[in-house]
């Protein structure tokens, strides 16, 4: 059979499988799959045995195809999503700092949350956004949302709609304009932050839904950063936490914590160590730790098993890769 035929058959099998599962889903026959503890353990052992076989083959000189690595990573990420295993979460100091900063605020304090990311980074940052907003509302804090990325305020709306489905949140009777405000997106990157340092209204004459700034009771008396008690920046790149630190924190003395993608997080530790940032949530693990502190099981906690399992597989492949490297010696291209 030709390679092309094999590829087409594989695609056909995936398509048929997807259609069947989808039909089962919409007809209500299947409401989800959950592996028991025993099945989960068997799966984990099987994967690690397969990795051991790959290591032995590598040591014998049979290098593994890169697509095999991709396949293993796919399984190590997908299968734990179906497993019913809980994972212990250890809270780091910088996450606790964000939590304490929120807890220490008096009810009624104003918190500014800037959503500086887009859907591409949502898997990491959306769980942080949801748990942070949830904690703020649980503590009766007033939340002002904005974005330096065009899609940021949309992500904020998504987060709000998700947490407002929660019964505890419904009981809080959160009102737009009084308990929270979405000021929307403003173009201009860090220059927006700079202008906000003297006057919020000059940057946000209207909110996300088109209401005038002065018609929003929560913000009508908010002139600049001196009226903000704490700020939290969810950032996936530029403009993001670095720009907020440089302008809002260092120039205007805003108290700020950061929620960053894991790619960005290491760079933010310099600001954390120098006291420019008050707390940091780095990547999904940061989100999961925050959820643990906030006593809330969100998506970050649910995803952590996949994350940890995938990390173990990556570590295994690093060992396999190094075994191959030291066995064959590094080839010079030039």
């Amino acid at each position: 059979m030709s390679t092309r035929a094999k590829e087409l058959i594989t695609i056909a099998i995936i398509a048929v499988f997807s259609v069947v599962i989808y039909i089962l889903k919409i007809t209500g026959v299947m409401t989800g799959i959950e592996f028991s503890g025993t099945v989960s353990t068997i799966i984990i052992i099987a994967i690690f045995l397969a990795l051991l076989v790959i290591l032995i083959r590598t040591l014998r000189g049979h290098l593994v195809d890169r697509r095999t690595v991709f396949l293993f990573i796919a399984f190590s990420v997908a299968l734990p999503l179906l497993m019913n295993i809980s994972q212990k979460i250890t809270v780091s100091g910088e996450v606790e700092q964000v939590y304490n900063a929120v807890i220490d605020l008096q009810p009624g304090s104003r918190v500014l949350v800037s959503f500086d990311y887009d859907p591409a980074s949502a898997p990491e940052l959306q769980p942080m956004a949801e748990s942070f907003l949830r904690l703020c509302f649980m503590r009766d804090l007033k939340v002002i949302v904005m974005g330096l990325w065009p899609q940021g305020p949309q992500q904020a709306e998504l987060a709000m709609s998700t947490i407002l489905e929660d019964d505890e949140m419904k009981a809080k009777n959160i009102k737009y304009g009084i308990d929270y405000v979405n000021l929307g997106y403003q173009a201009g990157n860090e220059f927006v932050v700079q202008r906000m340092g003297s006057d919020f209204k000059s940057m946000f004459r209207k909110d996300y839904s088109g209401r005038a700034y002065d018609d929003l009771p929560l913000v009508k008396n908010v002139k600049n950063f001196s009226n903000i008690d704490y700020s939290f920046n969810l950032s996936a790149g530029y403009p993001g936490t670095q720009e907020w630190v440089q302008v809002a924190v260092d120039r205007y003395g805003l108290k700020m914590g950061g929620g960053n993608t894991a790619v960005q997080a290491p760079m933010m530790y310099t600001y954390l160590n120098a006291g420019q940032l008050e707390g940091l949530l780095g990547g999904m693990s940061g989100g999961a730790e925050f959820e643990y502190l906030a006593n809330f099981t969100g998506k970050a906690t649910k995803y952590m098993l996949s994350q940890s399992f995938a990390h173990m597989v990556v570590v295994a492949f690093i060992i396999i890769g190094n075994a191959a490297f030291f066995r064959s010696g590094r080839e010079k291209k030039l």
């Binding site: 990573i73 997908a78 999503l81 179906l82 898997p123 995803y303 990556v314």
Partner: peptide
Amino acid sequence: MSLLIGRMDFLLGDWLGMI
């Protein structure tokens, strides 16, 4: 990995309803 998990969550959860 987080991005991949997000997509897997979509494929297995939102799309196929397996989670």
